[in-house]
């Protein structure tokens, strides 16, 4: 039985995340930090160079919308004093305005409200969590990163999280892609077929805002036009860790990371109580 011995050869490959940090996750270009009150010609040039128009220069300084950012790095090259990459993958947010940095007070209120509503809704999910994926016009890379979650390295089954074929058994809808005209109806039908309470995660910058590819005669500017999105996972594509963080955030197993910081695994104990095989 050569396959059996081979299966043992690698030892433990599975990530300790979220109970413990995973060093690999820290090696990513996670997101772009925009300094407070960034102004000047360099900043204006960076905004003009951004391929997705993610940077807006206003009176109080520039603000960068991570929901539109495709991490191309141009702004960091043009205005290194104001924009720089920060490592990490805990970049998902519970409300769309929370992806805009530096943050603004009124947005913080909205984020808090969204978090509270979601928390009440997912209270019922203190059991295994079932995911259903719908591609609404991705470039195909997001599907690779989603599929990786089922592999031995991320192994989401250990957390009591499973993919399901049937929308009727699904708690969480993961949507990839810009929201093409052709997928609006199939996407909506899948959402409607899911029982309540349900949570929707927009996976990737395309799904969050249309990214670089949206806004044509056949594509939208994100999937929120078709289904109510609860969690926004930026990235082009987001890494498997980034998606995993979004899922954990959605079901309340981790707390929201402060903008640009690292999340605390608030629900680590809850996870242990979920009847997951060790």
């Amino acid at each position: 039985m050569p396959w059996v011995t081979r299966g043992l050869r690698e030892g433990i490959v599975t990530t300790p995340y979220p109970r413990h940090p995973d060093g690999y996750g820290r090696s990513f270009k996670g997101h772009v930090v925009c300094e407070e009150k960034a102004t000047g010609t360099e900043v204006a040039a960076a905004a003009a160079a951004c391929p997705t128009g993610a940077i807006e220069v206003g009176a109080g300084g520039a603000r960068l919308d991570r929901g539109r950012c495709v991490l191309c790095g141009r702004c960091c090259e043009v205005a290194p004093g104001s924009f720089h990459f920060q490592p990490g993958f805990e970049t998902a947010a519970l409300a769309r305005p929370a992806l805009v940095v530096p943050g603004r007070e009124p947005d913080d209120g909205e984020v808090a409200r969204a978090r509270e509503q979601l928390r009440r809704r997912v209270k019922a999910l203190r059991r295994s969590v079932y995911l259903r994926h719908v591609d609404a016009g991705s470039d195909g890379s997001e599907e690779w990163e989603l599929a990786a979650l089922m592999g031995p390295i991320y192994d989401i089954n250990r957390l009591g999280i499973f993919f399901t074929a049937s929308p009727r058994h699904a708690d969480v809808l993961l949507v990839t892609g810009v929201g093409t005209s052709g997928m609006l109806v199939p996407l909506r039908l899948t959402y409607d077929a899911m029982p309540s309470p349900k949570v929707v995660i927009a996976v990737g910058t395309d799904a969050v805002s249309g990214g670089l590819t949206g806004g044509t005669y056949a594509s939208g500017k994100g999937v929120a036009a078709a289904v109510p999105v609860d969690v926004f996972v930026p990235g082009s594509p987001p890494s498997p860790f980034g998606i995993l963080y979004g899922i954990l955030l959605a079901v309340g197993l981790v707390g929201q990371a402060p903008r640009g910081g690292e999340a605390r695994p608030a629900g680590a104990e809850a996870m242990e109580g979920k009847g997951v095989a060790p």
């Binding site: 391929p51 495709v70 191309c72 591609d135 609404a136 016009g137 991705s138 470039d139 892609g177 810009v178 093409t180 005209s181 052709g182 997928m183 395309d206 990214g211 670089l212 590819t213 949206g214 806004g215 044509t216 005669y217 056949a218 594509s219 082009s236």
Partner: peptide
């Protein structure tokens, strides 16, 4: 999942075209 990508290229700079081609 037709995104109308060919139309999206029109008018872009050469550098932005690369980012779109990658997607």
């Amino acid at each position: 999942k037709h995104r109308g990508m060919e139309a999206r290229f029109a008018g872009l700079s050469l550098a932005d075209g690369t980012l779109l081609a990658e997607r």
